[in-house]
Nucleic acid binder design. Structure first.
Lengths: 200, 200, 200, 200
DNA sequence: AATGAATGAGTCTTCATTCAT
DNA sequence: GATGAATGAAGACTCATTCAT
């Protein structure tokens, strides 16, 4: 509603996320991003110290968005089964709603990176790791509660959790935003699968 | 046929897959690969027309390996549930057994590639797509059979199949070849999850 | 005239000289300087039209400081030998006392500079050249007087003068301001060397 | 006499030294160098891993050349005074004969360098330091011998040596290769100054 | 006076690819 | 078959400078 629609920083973040999601992080140059924004490379470097920091900012935003959507369901009083189902649905909805941001995360999951990292980047990375740990812990607790109640199979959670999250990440790979798609149908089916995957 | 333990081609393929898996396809130069082989860049270009062809060869090999491991279970007489379980186990075993090759595939799933592609590469790519389609069809048929028999939930298979495969791909992201790990335990648990995800 | 301890201009000059001396003129950005001052880049550009002008101001200050220290001894009535010794001592003392400023001068002795120069900068440069010529002439006259009196060897002064000044500049390269160093000892020894270098 | 006048490596070294000497190390880009050679930037990077390594190679060559010229006089049986005079003359001759290479050394004497250094570069640097230490030790021993014999003043050699070398380096700053200049005259005068600077 | 955003030209470096030997 | 030299295009990053506020 203000005169400037969005802060420069946010615009860059959006443009970068979109480009990275479309062509891949490594295949997208800072020049590419600045070109799509009709801005100079310098502008990007004024706001982000390096390509790595830009990527981290996107990843952090993605994780934060997911946490914001899923968190409320974790803190509800539902039974483990229902809670997991709701969390899963929220996760899938997040994936689809801000597709570009979350696609970048997946690409960075390998995260090896021989490149030199800025000090800022290292800080961002540890913040991200903390958020991700928090996030995984929500699923861990939900699963543990379900196991204790006999709703879920006894299982090695260090295997279960990442695999469960893979199901919920799946739309990242194939979802194409068209007009007619019904997001909640997809979310529902994937949540069914997720719950089924761990239930007795 | 030759006296050598392994053909030059296979050695290159192995070295490339290992390097690509470790550092990422885009972060690994042809020079890097040749260096790990104590060979020259030229040698690689003798056997593969371009970096793209090299990648495709790795991907094709990966798909073929998976097909070889999973196929026999598809062609068995087991009930859909058991068949899916066996196929899933075989898939996970493949992932872990030739980790490097399969990791490359994941990275190339985006596959956009703005770069110019060789004629050879285009051919390889369509062969790969054909193999992958065959592979997915095995799962499709197994699932359809299970749905018909009422063992599996009615569901949108175009959502189910890629999501199911995501579970089975999961170890690619976190498996680290250490001494003591029990591959079959992991395969069993993931197969359980896969079957659970689609069952009533 | 103002209440401030030091004018903004002088603060910038000090910070710049220090940074230039430490990291080298070309390796120090205007940003680096402003950062060490906890000020903005713009502030520097308010007081100095360009990086070149800033450098020139430092150089001019350095030359002026040296002239101020050495001049009085030139205008004394001492014998050429004694006069040269005193001038040399004063020069070395200057070098060590305002190390940073004089280090910048050395770096700029090449002074080629392909870059475009401001009008201001051109003016500053000719003022500097004039001061430097004055300075060298003091040594020239002292040496000529000594030669005439038979205290100094007959020699090509266009070779002698710059070489003599090199001895006196030497501390710039290796002097490190520590606690216990005795500046006057160093100055005395170098002055001995300078006089010895030209004497019969 | 062979068909190729000079190795690619040596050509690059020469072109780089010339350009660095003329415009300064920081003001000369790798592009500049390759342009003067009618070659591609890539060629330079094929032979030298980084700009830093290229500079080091030049410096090392410079030090080696000087050592080769001065060494023989150090190992002669002359009296300290005569020996120092001969060494000084040889040093000056070296400076003037391969002016470009030695000019680069002077610029690098500050040597701070915030830039990241290659492993190769670090190795080169320590080799250079070793050579330079050897070189300074030749002067140190010659001076100590002269002091013991009462030909040279008692003095702080850690001050004397670098200052003495500054005199001998001086031509680097002002020598311009013209037709008629008499190198040996300059060398003789500077050697006189050097010996005078340390003698009783 | 001072600030912070923005620019654009330039710099070092990398790398897939080609080619003569 | 294999090698090492060479190329050219691109990419990440820097920085002096300008300008609106």
């Amino acid at each position: 509603m203000s005169v400037q629609t969005k802060s420069a920083r946010a615009s860059i973040l959006d443009a970068a996320a979109t480009a990275f999601a479309e062509y891949g992080v490594d295949q997208t140059s800072i020049d590419d991003i600045s070109r799509t924004m009709n801005a100079s490379k310098g502008k990007i470097y004024h706001h982000f110290g390096s390509k790595g920091e830009l990527i981290c900012a996107i990843v952090k935003h993605s994780v934060q968005l997911t946490l914001d959507r899923v968190g409320p369901y974790f803190y509800s009083d539902a039974t483990p089964s229902k809670k997991l189902h709701e969390m899963a649905q929220a996760h899938v909805t997040a994936m689809i709603s801000e597709l570009a941001y979350h696609r970048v995360v997946i690409e960075e999951m390998r995260g090896s990176k021989t490149d030199k990292v800025t000090v800022n980047e290292r800080m961002l990375r540890s913040e991200i790791t903390a958020l991700q740990t928090d996030y995984e812990n929500m699923f861990r607790k939900a699963l543990e509660a379900g196991i204790k109640l006999g709703q879920f199979r006894k299982q090695d959670l260090s295997v279960t959790i990442p695999s469960l999250l893979m199901i919920l990440h799946a739309p990242i790979y194939w979802y194409e935003p068209r007009g007619g798609e019904n997001i909640s149908l997809i979310a529902a089916q994937l949540a069914d699968m997720a719950v089924g995957a761990v239930s007795l």
